[in-house]
């Protein structure tokens, strides 16, 4: 399993792929960083990063499908899926190895973005509690997005289609909150509570206030686990109905 993990990481870091994507991530971050400094009131004492994260979700989610789009689609297209599935590794281990490698790349991106809070802390004051929670929340949300992106890559077998579908789904999850606010949905309280339960934005508000709730942790981890299991089942199923 470690061999596969290592190979996946190499495919990201021995090519310009991970670096370009990290650069894009940093670019988006720096734009909103500069913007939030520019619009800051003079009476604000501490710098709050969660707002930046919050504003940038819509851009960040374009990066994750690009990270995940090749994971299974390329294996299927290049015929290397046979190699993995005929190796002694189980499908579960294959999926996990790929998942962990993408998480590693994602974590590296987040580490790189720490430059901004450190810079801000050197020049002023930062609300650390909300910063740490925002990072945690963002990371957990990223896990779910990565799992979804991998599932789509495995289901569609086409990198571009999986990236586009991934963006639609992740954008949808973000906009669920707006949907929950409409009069139509408010008329049905049960539907409203369901939508707010899956809404990423509503959960992120707690993180941004420096609150780390066990409920959110369990929600994100179990959502990622469910999607990964789905992926494993989908691969097994395709083997059975292969044509």
């Amino acid at each position: 399993m470690f061999s596969l993990y290592k190979k996946e990481l190499q495919s990201f870091f021995f090519s310009p792929f991970a670096y370009i994507l990290t650069a894009l991530f940093m670019l988006i971050f720096s734009f909103s960083f500069i913007r939030s400094i520019a619009i800051m009131d003079s009476n604000v004492l501490k710098f709050s990063f969660p707002n930046i994260f919050y504003n940038n979700f819509f851009y960040f989610i374009f990066i994750i499908p690009i990270l995940t789009m090749r994971s299974f689609a390329d294996e299927r297209r290049g015929g290397t899926e046979v190699l993995l599935l005929t190796s002694p590794l189980s499908v579960t281990k294959i999926v996990l190895a790929k998942f962990l490698s993408i998480i590693t790349v994602f974590a590296v991106m987040m580490l790189a973005s720490l430059f901004f809070p450190i810079f801000a802390a050197a020049k002023g004051q930062v609300m650390w509690s909300s910063l740490i929670c925002a990072y945690l929340g963002f990371f957990l949300w990223g896990l779910v997005c990565i799992a979804v992106g991998m599932l789509l890559s495995s289901l569609t077998g086409n990198a571009i289609i999986s990236a586009i579908l991934g963006e639609i789904i992740m954008e949808g999850a973000l906009l669920a909150d707006n949907l929950g606010g409409t009069a139509l949905v408010n008329a049905y309280p049960k539907l409203n509570s369901l939508i707010s339960w899956i809404s990423m934005q509503r959960r992120f508000i707690y993180f941004s206030q420096g609150m780390f709730r066990l409920e959110d942790l369990i929600f994100f981890l179990s959502a990622a686990a469910v999607v990964i299991c789905w992926n494993i089942i989908a691969i097994e199923k395709r083997r059975w109905s292969h044509s």
Binding site: K7, S11, F14, G78, G79, T80
Partner: peptide
């Protein structure tokens, strides 16, 4: 297999 399962980038 019929198509050698190689990674072109390696």
């Amino acid at each position: 297999p019929e198509i050698p399962p190689v990674y072109p980038d390696m």
